[in-house]
């Protein structure tokens, strides 16, 4: 039941919203993986980021698209938790330190083993819209455990203008999506983080982005 609901929600609400109300200018679409397992890593400005990234994939891959999202935020209320896990299909991630001893990335490992496509925002929060914050290193742990899985960096711009943190009114803007070349596992977490950071920063310079102050 929820699977059908999820399929229809993306077909009838999300796709028209992202493709007509907002609109996408994408560069290097061919670099997106058309099968899992894969990890899409993007900067984070808005709730719309997840929906825009999911729209880049054909509807038949919807089942395997899994955005990773903060458990403390999305599981805080019952209705929101149902919507986030059943309709959007998130993998909840605890942002607190793992005091219980369990691996907080367990859900992500399982999904990748199943061949899913993970969508991760390593900034950890939407933060100040259209500003790039430092990446958290959880992504490096994930990449280390799955060195064969392609990691694709993506730079997003514009959605932070359309629906920034703390705003409820959506104002249409085209969003730019620049897809980077897949990153190979370099052998060490620190090198990986440097490569990822460099990749997203260099993607950000590919387009001419208008000022927004």
């Amino acid at each position: 039941m929820n699977r059908v609901l999820r399929y229809c929600f993306f077909l009838v609400v999300v796709r028209p919203l992202v493709l007509i109300v907002l609109g996408i200018n994408i560069r290097h679409r061919e670099r997106l993986p058309m099968a899992g397992p894969a990890i899409i890593v993007a900067n984070h400005n808005s709730h719309l980021d997840t929906l825009a990234l999911m729209t880049l994939f054909p509807q038949r891959l919807l089942e395997s698209l899994r955005p990773v999202a903060a458990a403390d935020y999305f599981l805080s209320r019952k209705g929101l938790a149902w919507f986030a896990t059943q309709i959007i299909g998130i993998i909840p991630l605890s942002r607190k330190l793992h005091h219980s001893g369990g691996d907080p990335l367990k859900g992500c490992h399982e999904a990748l083993d199943r061949g899913d496509i993970l969508i991760i925002f390593p900034e950890g929060s939407r933060g100040e819209p259209e500003h790039l914050a430092a990446f958290k290193t959880g992504i490096a742990h994930l990449a280390e455990r799955h060195p064969q899985t392609p990691v694709i960096p993506v730079f997003l711009h514009g959605l932070g203008k359309a629906l920034p943190k703390g705003e409820s009114l959506l104002v249409p803007f085209f969003c730019d999506i620049f897809v980077g070349a897949k990153l190979a596992w370099p052998g060490a977490r620190q090198e990986f983080m440097a490569a990822l950071d460099g990749a997203i920063r260099s993607l950000a310079t590919e387009g001419k982005l208008p000022d927004w102050e």
Binding site: K161, P164, V171, F173, F174, P210, D211, E213
Partner: peptide, 16 residues
């Protein structure tokens, strides 16, 4: 209009 507003510099205060 959306294309135009996405290309020009806009002010954050003018979103609404």
């Amino acid at each position: 209009l959306k294309e135009y507003l996405s290309l020009i510099p806009t002010r954050r205060a003018d979103r609404r």
